[in-house]
């Protein structure tokens, strides 16, 4: 630094020493702690969403006398969970959580008129948006990861342990759970990035959310080329137990797991980068809201 304002001016404390990476990490950490503290103090809606599959699986346990036909056959539990996961958790809850959490990361700060506190700090705005995104991923994956695991376990509870134990520990059970967790994680990452970025182009998250929901819902009817332009296409292909899509579905080759995982991660990086580019140009103008 040559003769700049810093050297001329009064005692400005030196920035914490070290590589920018270390400072960025500590700044991102500070943003995440602050966001957790003020943004997710009472996440009632999220908790209810995450509790719903657990409640449904519990009801099945309680009424297992009627709900479960063959206690010795774990396939029934596997099938039940596959339906519940893909329809309820993946298509509905993770999608809604993405809208609610990521669509509001920046928007809520604008509505609360608090965004300027971040904009008045010596933090790169790209870093700010990335830190907020990571907070969202952390919160949603923690809640829905736990929900995924508990409801998975509950799905097998009505079945005989003599059948469940070999399925879990010597069969595909734990690997299936791992796959479901991976899908939950990638859904948080993917839908999160989509709704974070859309938030910079739409005033209210409801409009793009409805459009996106429609698009993702008719996914199974889309021709193969268009299928590739939906998030659910990749997430669904990673689910360990397929569920039938009905007679109207247009069949197409499922992408390979690597394509799905890497593709979703790359998509997320691109969308967070787009958000960073948008937030750099953002002005504080609370008045319209």
């Amino acid at each position: 630094m040559s003769e700049t304002a810093a050297s001329l001016a009064s005692p400005t404390p030196a920035a914490p020493a070290g590589l920018p990476w270390r400072r960025w990490a500590s700044q991102a950490g500070a943003v995440m702690r602050l966001d957790l503290r003020k943004g997710f103090r009472r996440p009632v809606g999220l908790l209810l969403l995450a509790a719903a599959p657990i409640a449904i699986a519990l009801i099945r346990v309680v009424f297992s006398a009627h709900a479960v036909h063959e206690r010795a056959d774990v396939a029934e539990g596997t099938n039940f969970y596959a339906w519940m996961y893909q329809i309820l958790i993946l298509r509905l809850e993770l999608f809604l959580a993405g809208v609610a959490v990521f669509g509001n990361l920046i928007r809520r700060e604008v509505l609360d008129r608090t965004l300027h506190y971040y904009f008045l700090s010596p933090i790169r705005r790209e870093l700010l948006v990335a830190a907020k995104y990571l907070t969202g991923v952390l919160v949603t994956f923690t809640l829905f990861g736990i929900s995924t695991v508990i409801s998975f376990v509950l799905a097998y509870l009505p079945h005989d342990w003599t059948a469940v134990s070999p399925f879990l520990f010597h069969g595909p059970g734990l690997r299936q759970l791992g796959s479901y967790l991976l899908v939950t994680f990638l859904a948080c990452v993917g839908y999160g990035a989509v709704f974070l970025a859309l938030g910079f182009f739409f005033k209210s998250p409801a409009v793009p959310a409805l459009g996106m929901f429609g698009w993702e819902s008719i996914h199974f009817l889309l021709p193969p080329l268009l299928k590739q332009a939906s998030v659910i296409h990749y997430l669904q292909s990673l689910c360990p137990v397929p569920i039938p899509e009905g007679p109207l579905a247009v069949l197409s080759d499922a992408p390979s797991p690597w394509v799905s995982v890497v593709g979703l991660l790359v998509l997320a990086v691109i969308l967070v980068a787009v958000s960073g580019w948008r937030i750099r140009r953002m002005e504080i103008s609370y008045d319209e809201s």
């Binding site: 404390p13 920035a15 914490p16 400072r23 500590s26 700044q27 950490g29 500070a30 943003v31 702690r33 602050l34 503290r37 003020k38 103090r41 609360d112 608090t114 506190y117 971040y118 700090s121 010596p122 933090i123």
Partner: peptide
Amino acid sequence: PPGLNGSQFIRSYLRVHGF
């Protein structure tokens, strides 16, 4: 920012600075 007291408010801001 909701939920913060006076000192938390200043401290959080300084932590975002990287202190």
